[in-house]
């Protein structure tokens, strides 16, 4: 009889660390996420069902109880929940027209923090990340190098960089290089 083999899920960024004295990179904890598409008429019902007010202003987000709703486009949001909730089911209870695709495993995230976190990200990202233009709570889909990411500023010196799993090592490495350059 052969021994029972058990596969263990391993996050693509598990154990990775990097950065410098001015910008530190750490993998974010696993989270559930949905890519939510809906017309304006559904926003109120979905906000109620998800217990977080979907933002309708460009580049803004809303948070409640460890759940974050990020404006991506006029009819698109990225919802992130750190407690592992079933977001598709919750959105479904709204009864309003929408599309919710579970992207929990498509995305992972890098937390970039430190006094020059913005400089480290700007090594590969063309957006203006000054606090006046990209304040705390601001979010945006954009690019880091060749990879598409969603940036979310959670504190003056901290960004959550949501990235597709297959691009995660590349984005982590590029921002880590930027963090080292930022310390020079």
């Amino acid at each position: 009889m052969s021994d029972l083999m058990q596969a263990t899920r391993r996050g693509v960024l598990d154990g990775m660390h990097g950065g410098s004295a001015v910008a530190r990179l750490t993998p974010a904890a696993p989270a559930s996420r949905i890519s939510l598409r809906a017309p304006a008429a559904s926003v109120e019902a979905l906000s109620g069902a998800l217990a977080v007010a979907l933002p309708v202003k460009p580049k803004t987000s809303a948070s409640a109880n460890g759940r974050h709703a990020l404006w991506i486009g006029p009819d698109e949001w990225l919802i992130i929940d750190e407690s592992g909730a079933d977001l598709v089911a919750e959105a479904g209870k709204s009864g309003a027209l929408h599309s919710a695709a579970d992207v929990s495993h498509r995305n992972t995230a890098v937390i970039v923090s430190g006094p020059k976190a913005d400089v480290a990200i700007n090594a590969g990202c063309p957006q203006d990340l000054s606090l006046a233009i990209f304040p705390v709570g601001a979010c945006s889909r954009t690019l880091v190098g060749k990879a598409e990411v969603v940036l979310y500023r959670t504190a003056a010196d901290t960004f959550r960089v949501e990235v597709w799993r297959s691009f995660a090592a590349y984005v982590f490495g590029l921002i880590a290089e930027g963090a080292e350059d930022a310390a020079l």
């Binding site: 460009p58 991506i72 486009g73 698109e76 889909r141 690019l143």
Partner: peptide, 11 residues
């Protein structure tokens, strides 16, 4: 011209 904000809002 038409342009698409493909790596932004997607519109």
């Amino acid at each position: 011209e038409r342009w698409r904000h493909v790596h932004g809002c997607g519109k």
